[in-house]
Simulated assay, not measured.
Amino acid sequence: MPEPTIQVRINHAVHELPQGASLADAIAQADIRPPFAAAVNLQFVPRAQYPVYLLQNEDQIELISPITGG
């Protein structure tokens, strides 16, 4: 029997994760390098919360890298 999964959008791309996945799991799948900030459903999530922030089906995740220059 297959493991239950959820679908989330990471920077507008659909990803499938196991049910009970954390924001840290989604970030690992997105393969983004620090520095970046994360928001779930337009709510900023502090870095310390990534491993314990559990995702729900259809969550919208934005991983935003700072823009430098001038």
Rank of each mutant, 00 (worst) to 15 (best):
G20R: 07
L54I: 12
L55E: 10
P35I: 08
E16P: 01
L54F: 07
A37K: 02
V8G: 12
D59F: 01
A38C: 04
S65R: 11
N11S: 13
I61P: 03
N57C: 05
A30G: 12
Q49M: 04
N57W: 02
G69Q: 06
L54C: 09
A28V: 11
A24T: 01
A48W: 02
A30E: 10
I32D: 03
P35H: 05
G69L: 02
R33P: 00
V14I: 12
V14F: 07
Q43L: 13
G20P: 03
P66G: 14
T5Q: 14
L55N: 08
I67D: 08
P34G: 01
I6P: 04
F44A: 08
E58C: 12
I10Y: 06
G69K: 06
D31T: 06
H12N: 15
I61D: 07
F44V: 09
Q43D: 13
I67V: 11
R9K: 15
Q7I: 11
F36C: 03
D31Q: 14
H12V: 11
A30R: 14
V45K: 04
Q49I: 01
A37V: 05
P2G: 09
M1Q: 02
N11Y: 15
I27L: 15
V40W: 10
L23P: 07
A21N: 05
V40R: 02
V8L: 13
M1P: 08
I27G: 13
V45P: 06
Q56F: 10
A48I: 00
N41D: 11
T68S: 14
I27C: 12
L17M: 04
I32R: 11
V45C: 05
D59E: 05
L54D: 01
A48C: 00
T68P: 00
G20D: 02
L17H: 10
D59V: 07
D31S: 10
Q60G: 06
D31W: 07
E62I: 07
I27D: 06
Q49L: 04
R47L: 04
N41G: 00
H12L: 15
P35D: 08
Y50A: 07
D59Y: 07
A38E: 03
P35W: 06
L42W: 05
Q29N: 11
S65Q: 15
G69C: 06
P4R: 07
F44T: 09
V40P: 06
S22Q: 05
V14R: 14
V40A: 01
V45W: 09
N11F: 14
I61Q: 03
S22E: 07
V40L: 10
I64G: 00
S22K: 06
R47V: 11
Y50S: 05
S22G: 08
L17E: 08
A30N: 11
H15M: 12
Q29S: 14
F36W: 06
S22H: 02
P51Y: 09
P34M: 04
V45H: 00
A30W: 10
A21T: 02
N57I: 03
Y53D: 01
Q19G: 05
I32P: 02
